[in-house]
């Protein structure tokens, strides 16, 4: 069979192979709690990586589809975290209520902010997203009676679902991982749908898109709202998982990290940013346990990547892979 695959490059073979590889990767990801029973710390790190992956995916839904570059994406992540945390303390600890509430409120706020933002040209958009991030960061301190200010939001109750408390790390991991898989499936589905194609058209040639009758502002706004909502959902999950939220979540360093996941993984590849986030989160953990000056390495690496591999590391690798595959196909044909 393997010979047949190598020598007969049928259309669909590549796709089937990719599908199998993805399935294997998904299964491997799901199995993490099974082999980390004696390493609770690794499981927590893995959970954090999954949250980071969801945030990265959310940013790629904006950058990779309509080409809008957000330098303040942590704003939505942090917004979701605080909103969910505060609601959990004041209203209910039931995630079935909390998370939809967070998403709905994010949709409302991001629609208002996005209405102005998406009408700006690229640079103004980038600047305003950074400013918006700083504004929400400042808001945490203005409302310190509710948010806990500098100390962060403490004492978020243990969330419940259908009457059961969500406590076990493994359950948490699977919950987060499930959300990631659903979000990924959704992202791939949208990419192939008319909406996803219309987004890509805007990223590629906004002028032409307008002249085939696409409502560019509305389509950009939609991608902004989808992106913000998913980031807020990730933030909400993180706050409940972590039991606390800190103002650092809204810092521009955090936005920089999310941006890095996407750039590292390759803008618009959907799966790349997810892998980028996971690799980056784990690396950050180990590097920052060795040295205090994590930010120096991070910033330096960021600069280096932009200069050397603007398509992202995974982009570069997959390019190489495709070229090798094409060469092999060329030789066997």
């Amino acid at each position: 069979m393997s010979d047949e695959i190598a020598t007969m490059p049928m259309p669909g073979t590549d796709r089937r192979f990719t599908g199998l590889a993805l399935l294997a990767a998904a299964a491997l990801g799901a199995s993490v709690p099974l082999w980390t029973e004696n390493m609770p710390f690794v499981l927590i790190l893995a959970s954090q990586a999954v949250v980071a992956a969801i945030v990265a995916l959310s940013l790629d839904l904006l950058m990779g589809s309509t080409g809008l570059l957000s330098f303040g994406h942590a704003a939505w992540y942090g917004f979701g975290a605080y909103l969910t945390g505060i609601a959990a303390k004041m209203l209910t600890a039931d995630v079935v209520v909390l998370l939809p509430l967070t998403v709905v409120l994010t949709i409302v706020l991001s629609a208002i902010v996005g209405f102005v933002l998406v009408r700006q040209i690229g640079k103004t958009f980038a600047i305003l997203t950074l400013a918006f991030g700083q504004i929400l960061f400042a808001l945490v301190f203005v409302l310190s009676s509710i948010t806990g200010g500098e100390d962060g939001l403490q004492g978020i109750p243990i969330p419940t679902a259908f009457g059961f408390q969500i406590v076990k790390p493994a359950v948490w991991y699977w919950l987060l991982y499930g959300v990631l898989l659903v979000a990924l499936a959704g992202a791939f589905h949208i990419r192939r749908s008319p909406l996803g194609k219309a987004w890509l058209a805007i990223r590629e040639n906004t002028e032409r898109a307008r002249f085939i009758g696409l409502n560019v502002s509305l389509l950009k706004l939609l991608s902004y709202i989808v992106s913000a909502s998913l980031a807020a959902l990730a933030g909400g999950l993180f706050a409940l998982f972590n039991g606390a939220a800190s103002p650092d979540l809204l810092n521009w360093f955090e936005s920089g990290k999310v941006l890095m996941y996407v750039v590292l993984g390759g803008v618009g590849t959907i799966i790349g940013p997810v892998i980028g986030a996971a690799v980056f989160t784990v690396t950050e953990h180990y590097v920052s346990s060795i040295t205090d000056s994590w930010l120096i390495y991070f910033g330096g690496f960021f600069v280096l990547i932009v200069i050397v591999a603007p398509g992202g590391l995974f982009g570069a690798v997959s390019n190489l892979w495709q070229r090798i595959a094409a060469a092999r196909r060329g030789m066997s044909a």
């Binding site: 749908s193 008319p194 909406l195 194609k197 219309a198 058209a201 898109a209 085939i212 009758g213 696409l214």
Partner: peptide, 21 residues
């Protein structure tokens, strides 16, 4: 985008279904 997709984008836009998923 593929040649076909270039055209399909315009057709869907005309039919008012470009935002459907």
């Amino acid at each position: 985008l593929s040649v076909l997709e270039n055209i399909a984008l315009a057709i869907r836009s005309r039919e008012g279904i470009s935002r459907s998923i």
